[in-house]
Amino acid sequence: MKNEQIELLKSEAEANFNASRWEDSAKTYEHLVGLAQKNNDFEQAIDFALAAIHAWRRMPGKESRINKLYQAVGLIGLKKAAIGFEQVAEQAEKANDLNTAAVNFEEAANGYKLIQSFERAKAAYLKAIQLFDIRVKTALENKDFESAIHLLSRISSIYLNLKKLINYVLIERRSLLQKSEKEALFKEKEHYRSKYHKTVVKIAETHEKLSEEFCKQKTADYYLIAKKELQKAIEILESIDETQAAKKLKSKLNKIPKK
């Protein structure tokens, strides 16, 4: 029934356009944009939006209307992309391709955030963290510390995005939120802040482990690399005010031989 309605309205819009009834055509195409979105046919929605733009352009003084339609095209594109990334992620997860799955869940989350689909963004971010975390554990078990550092850095960035996401919700829905809902969101935000902090500490610890591995080579060049890794760990800890932990590593840094 929906498709029949869309086809009828599309024919009507085309007929109005061919008869130079630009406004009637444009308004019908605009209506079709909404119907196509409800039908989850985002490509068709974009086509209808562009057709509406084409009709409005035949009339003077319609720049604002045209600009809104271009904005709609962008948002529809973002939604389609987010859904597409999520579908790729789900397929990759089923195939046990955890890296592809995690990366695409993160991309999906970024898209959902931009179109203010906050719950879907949060779910996708958390899924990405879950999958990246599995890869971190594997990397650490294999003593692939460089890969672990890279993955942990991705996770820390996602926790920052989750914090920002909660801020967006608090701002965008501030007039709609009940006191208990606000309190829950602030608690959730603090949870992500804590997770971010712990992840950054883990990054520093992994740099320390990498330093220890380089020291085992017992050559001047490797000692130099080991010092650089330990220095990175110190800088990371200092950046999050873990001064005591950083102090311990400074003591350890001075004990690394020069040759």
Rank of each mutant, 00 (worst) to 15 (best):
2 K>Q: 06
18 N>A: 06
23 E>D: 14
27 K>E: 13
27 K>W: 00
28 T>C: 01
32 L>T: 09
33 V>L: 09
33 V>N: 09
34 G>H: 05
36 A>R: 06
37 Q>F: 02
38 K>F: 01
38 K>V: 05
41 D>W: 03
46 I>S: 09
47 D>W: 01
47 D>F: 05
48 F>G: 08
50 L>I: 08
52 A>D: 11
54 H>Y: 09
57 R>A: 09
58 R>E: 14
58 R>S: 12
61 G>M: 12
66 I>E: 10
69 L>A: 01
71 Q>D: 13
72 A>H: 02
75 L>Q: 07
77 G>T: 07
80 K>E: 09
91 Q>V: 12
91 Q>F: 00
92 A>S: 14
98 L>W: 06
100 T>V: 14
102 A>G: 05
102 A>S: 12
111 G>E: 04
116 Q>V: 01
120 R>H: 07
124 A>W: 00
126 L>P: 02
130 Q>F: 02
132 F>W: 09
134 I>T: 09
136 V>I: 12
139 A>S: 15
140 L>N: 08
144 D>L: 08
150 H>D: 15
152 L>Q: 08
157 S>Y: 02
161 N>K: 04
162 L>C: 07
163 K>V: 04
171 I>M: 07
172 E>C: 04
179 K>C: 03
179 K>T: 12
181 E>Q: 12
189 K>G: 06
190 E>W: 01
191 H>T: 13
193 R>V: 05
194 S>E: 14
196 Y>H: 11
197 H>F: 13
200 V>R: 08
202 K>G: 04
202 K>Q: 11
204 A>S: 14
211 S>I: 04
213 E>V: 08
216 K>W: 05
218 K>R: 15
218 K>S: 10
223 Y>W: 06
223 Y>H: 04
224 L>I: 03
226 A>S: 13
231 Q>Y: 04
235 E>K: 05
244 Q>Y: 10
250 K>F: 06
250 K>I: 08
255 K>Y: 03
258 K>I: 12
259 K>D: 15
